[in-house]
């Protein structure tokens, strides 16, 4: 799998699994070990689709689920 942000390539399990968008969809969020960006990942294809941007509020450094799964 390839990080959308920095291009780091490695097997999916090298990317830190964060949490799912919905339990019944194949979309999850994983963090790139190199640049620490959050990738929205299609677990069926082991493919990083986009970067989910963290908010800058003090209470939420992680990404939202909006828009990455219907």
């Amino acid at each position: 799998m390839k990080c959308v942000a920095c291009g780091f390539e490695g097997p999916v399990d090298k990317f830190r699994y964060l949490y799912n968008a919905r339990i019944d969809a194949s979309m999850s969020m994983r963090q790139c070990p190199k640049c620490n960006e959050w990738n929205a990942v299609d677990e069926l294809k082991d493919e990083a689709l986009e970067i989910v941007n963290p908010g800058d509020a003090p209470w939420g450094k992680s990404a939202g689920i909006e828009g990455i799964s219907a």
Partner: peptide, 14 residues
């Protein structure tokens, strides 16, 4: 809502 972690926020939306 703004006082809870993003993960919890997401969970509530789910």
């Amino acid at each position: 809502f703004v006082d809870i972690s993003r993960k919890t926020q997401d969970n509530i939306i789910q």
